[in-house]
Write a protein that binds this DNA or RNA. Structure first.
Length: 867
RNA sequence: GCGUGGUUAGCUCAGUGGUAGAGCGCCUCGUUUACACCGAGGAUGUCGGGGGUUCGAAACCCUCACCGCGCACCA
């Protein structure tokens, strides 16, 4: 009985656009992504690294989200109460910039509106245009719990901010001080150290003579314009050149003020002239020296970076214009001793707008990080928090152990306003949630650094400071998945704040760091290079699954990955392959009905695919659990494409063609393999697997289906070597046919010799099917040998002797080379004496095998007719 | 300067002691019971240089060279 092809309720071609949106809607409607705090299941929690409210989905998010979704979906299938919590960051400077730009287009500034109206405007902007990224996350298939979506400026998250601020203040960990801070003259706000990016800029290094005659000293500087603010000149205490001058005074040119020469260890006598101008109000190092030596703070620039208060012609000039003008003037006065131009040196730029940062003396709020950072370091040191991959831990320690106090006040309007109130006589009151300041007190106008509220994210999103069921169930979170680029910005700060707020309980068990997505040549993507890519465009073109799989397949822990459009096309091809394989399986009646036939009753081909499936499940599971997404994807890819499609489906065709009981068994085994494969593929390719699995099994969803368990007992390693033999035999036959120019479609008659003794007799029909060889009784005109098996072909007419000689000669060369390597080893006394037994055995077997091959091939060559 | 990663096929990358791998690209052939977004077959590497350890090194050690990344300094 021939098997009947079944009607298949699957489109003949895979079109991602047709299935993705409806499936996502189906998942939302069913509420699969909602986490239940009252559940008895063990929790699995990931909080999303909150994208900026101004942001759109870029390829880096696509990678980050894919990895988080893989973990979340897998854990959900494993029976965890999985919560992936989405949300956004209010992104103080970035958002304020966007709205200010809009106002500027109307010729207005935020000051025209006033604070209250401006902030209202930002909220309006957020409601209308903010959060575009959230819809894009749906395209990607993110299985986040939308009911728990959070925003750092939400009421409850703001409560968390007030609570932690007051708690830190009360413990003396928040203080206000006048310091040199990083100032952006364009954004008009203070910045923390990490919001400053250092770039190598070209400047000029000029040496200027201060004073005259005996009473003079030459200082070298790149910032001549600040000299009007100099309060001293410093030299190293042991510098013999200047020892006699320490304690005396020199005349400061341009402003004609006498300033002292001081001695300080900070000065490097080998750099420049060994004498440094001390501009206490405009340089952090000078500030430190000034504090030690009572040098006055002379402010010579305003908040816009414009010269002011010097009482010279330079007042009113921009700092960079002033630099040029000051140098020109000094030259005119004959005070430039030497100059070096261009002089490449690192200069800080605002990470938001790229303006050159100006060190500025100002009164700001700081977090005293020492104790917090110590705890954050210890949590990793003592193993409570693991950093994956480990190589990135030193980078974390380096930063956490050497962190400066954190400047948290920003001169912005968009953000959490600092909950500090000042009384008429400079009294200071800090108000926690629900507390009100005494009458007549006014609130500090500044807002907090955005990262202050982001640092609370793992618990503020769960309801803290209220003791909510969510907090009890889902804190600490399981794993933090993010790029190594925000290890300092965000991760370290969450560690500090989490440990502090939650009484020493770490915010996550594991920090899984991934790399950056780069262009096809491994170059950093940037707008200026013009090599950026748009994930949405890729999803439109190839489907979300293809994009996700490509990104997962490139994600080796902590390392960057290159990405090219062709790789995504390749992943789409893989999806199509899976689609067609499922169609084929369904046509042949593959099913998951009833129990699987007893493993021992199955033939070697089915035992083999089940064994390979079991190995694959075990490997993929272990790799996902250790954040090895690239390796897991690779295993899945090769199992699905090579083992299942190229071999199992092909080898099963004979069985399906035969119909009857064998076809039924194959259909059931195939059904099982496909069912399990779709399950392990679901986390990385959720859409297509859902579509196929539902069509094929009639089940409701894979989202909550059970994750396959390895070591199911459906495993027999000997089936692997059996099928390896079959594969070698088939490949050699194909090679012979190919070399002989026999069309793939052409059926050729041939007889097998020795199948029985090799244990392959039961698979003859499968082998014949896959190699398109028909049986004959006699009339062989050509013979090849593969190991101990001979194949006698009935080729009408003569064989291509030249091609056959070439084929055999090549085989002979390979065998001889292999035999030589084996022989060299076995002749080596050291090897025989010291190599482990099993290695020696292996090499011996190789020698025997290659020797036999050589003998056989030599005989075959000799038997060929002379050309 | 301190720390850290890398140098493997044309490109992007796996491979951490036992006969060099993948994807893409390349060459030849090809519609066979799913799939040309496919199938079959094939070519391609003194594993950056030098030295060492070892019976055996792409892998371990030393050294040099060159790329990268982070941090600090840069008056």
């Amino acid at each position: 009985m021939k098997s009947e092809k079944k009607e298949v309720n699957l489109a003949p071609a895979f079109t991602p656009a047709d299935i993705e949106a409806p499936l996502y809607q189906k998942w939302l409607d069913a509420g699969y992504f909602k986490a239940d705090a009252t559940s008895k299941k063990p929790p699995f929690t990931i909080v999303i690294p909150p994208p900026n409210v101004t942001g759109v989905l870029h390829i880096g998010h696509a990678l980050d989200h894919t990895l988080q979704d893989i973990l979340t979906r897998m854990k959900r299938m494993k029976g965890f109460e999985a919560l992936w919590l989405p949300g956004m960051d209010h992104a103080g400077i970035a958002t304020q910039n966007v709205v200010e730009k809009q106002l500027a287009a109307e010729g207005k500034s935020r000051h025209d509106l006033g604070r209250e109206a401006f902030v209202k405007k930002v909220w309006e902007w957020k409601a209308e245009s903010g959060g575009a990224i959230l819809d894009q996350m749906k395209r990607l298939g993110d299985s986040v719990d939308w009911e728990r979506e959070a925003f750092t400026m939400d009421a409850n998250l703001s409560t968390a901010v007030l609570t932690i601020f007051k708690r830190l203040y009360d413990q003396g960990l928040i203080y206000r001080a006048e310091r040199i801070i990083n100032w952006c003259p364009r954004c008009l706000t203070a910045l923390s150290d990490i919001e400053v990016e250092h770039q190598d800029d070209a400047g000029e290094f000029v040496s200027v003579r201060y004073g005259d005659g005996e009473q003079s000293i030459v200082v070298a500087t790149t910032r001549a314009e600040t000299m009007m603010g100099d309060g001293a000149v410093a030299v190293h205490p042991d510098d013999p050149r200047y020892k006699h001058l320490v304690g005396t005074e020199v005349m400061l040119p341009l402003v004609n003020r006498m300033i002292p020469i001081i001695a300080d260890e900070l000065v490097d006598p080998d750099f420049g002239t060994g004498a440094v101008k001390v501009t206490a109000a405009h340089d952090p190092n000078d500030f430190e020296m000034a504090m030690r030596h009572n040098v006055p703070f002379v402010v010579i620039m305003n908040e816009h970076g414009v010269m002011a208060g010097t009482g010279t012609e330079f007042d009113g000039m921009d700092r960079f214009d002033a630099r040029v003008a000051v140098v020109a003037k000094l030259k005119e006065l004959g005070r430039i001793v030497a100059e070096k131009r261009p002089y490449i040196h690192a200069v800080g730029h605002c990470s938001r707008c790229d303006t050159t940062v100006e060190p500025r003396l100002s009164k700001q709020w700081f977090v005293k990080v020492a104790p917090l950072a110590k705890a954050a370091g210890d949590a990793v040191r003592d193993g409570r928090v693991k950093i994956e991959p480990e190589e990135l831990a030193p980078r974390y320690f380096d930063w956490v152990d050497g962190m400066h106090d954190w400047c948290i006040s920003r001169q912005l309007w968009w953000g959490h306003q600092i909950p500090v109130y000042y009384g008429p006589n400079d009294e200071v009151v800090v108000c926690g949630p629900g507390e009100t300041p005494p009458a007549g007190y006014t609130q500090d106008p500044d807002v907090l650094d955005t990262w202050f509220s982001s640092a609370l994210w793992p618990f503020s999103t769960l309801g803290w400071p209220a003791q909510t069921p969510d907090l009890a169930k889902f804190y600490p979170t399981s794993v933090l998945v993010t790029g190594y680029d925000i290890l300092f910005f965000w991760v370290a700060r969450m560690m500090m704040m989490g440990l502090f707020a939650m009484d020493g309980v770490q915010p996550f068990h594991t920090i899984a760091l991934h790399g950056l997505v780069r262009d096809r040549f491994g170059k950093k993507m940037s707008k200026s290079r013009g090599n950026t890519v748009d994930p949405i465009e890729f999803m439109d073109k190839y489907g979300s699954d293809a994009l996700r799989f490509t990104l997962a397949r490139g994600a080796n822990p902590g390392s960057d990955q290159a990405l090219a459009e062709e790789w995504i096309a390749g992943a789409r091809n893989f999806a199509t392959k899976l689609w067609n394989a499922t169609r084929f399986a369904m046509m042949n009646g593959a099913n998951v009905d009833g129990p699987l036939p007893a493993f021992d009753s199955l033939d070697g081909i089915s035992q083999w695919i089940l064994t390979r499936l079991d190995q694959t499940v075990a490997e993929v599971d272990a790799l996902y659990e250790s954040y090895e997404f690239a390796k897991a994807s690779e295993i899945i890819y090769h199992f699905a494409w090579d083992d299942l499609c190229d071999w199992y489906l092909e080898l099963s065709k004979a069985s399906f063609a035969a119909g009857g009981e064998s076809a039924k068994v194959s259909a059931r085994v195939l059904g099982h393999v496909l069912d399990q494969l779709l399950r392990i593929m679901h986390p990385s390719m959720p859409f297509i697997t859902e579509e196929l699995w539902c069509a094929f099994t009639g089940g409701e969803t894979l989202v909550t289906a059970t994750w396959p368990s390895a070591n199911s007992g459906l495993r027999d390693e000997s089936s692997i070597s059996l099928i390896t033999q079959v594969q070698e035999l088939v490949t050699e036959i194909r090679r012979f046919r190919n070399d002989q120019g026999i069309k793939t479609s052409a059926k050729v008659g041939a007889k097998f010799i020795g199948l029985e003794s090799a244990g392959l007799a039961p698979y003859e029909s499968a082998i014949r099917q896959i190699t398109r060889i028909e049986s004959i009784e006699s009339g062989a005109s050509a013979k090849i040998e593969v190991g101990k098996i001979g194949i006698e072909f009935d080729l009408t007419g003569a064989i291509d002797v030249g091609a056959e000689r070439a084929r055999l000669t090549k085989d002979l060369a390979t065998a001889e080379k292999d035999r030589t390597t084996a022989k060299v080893k076995l002749d080596n006394e050291g090897f025989m004496a010291k190599a482990p037994m099993e290695v020696v055995q292996e090499i011996r077997a190789r020698l025997a095998e290659t020797s036999a091959d050589i003998e056989r091939i030599t005989a075959q060559l000799a038997a060929l007719p002379q050309a």
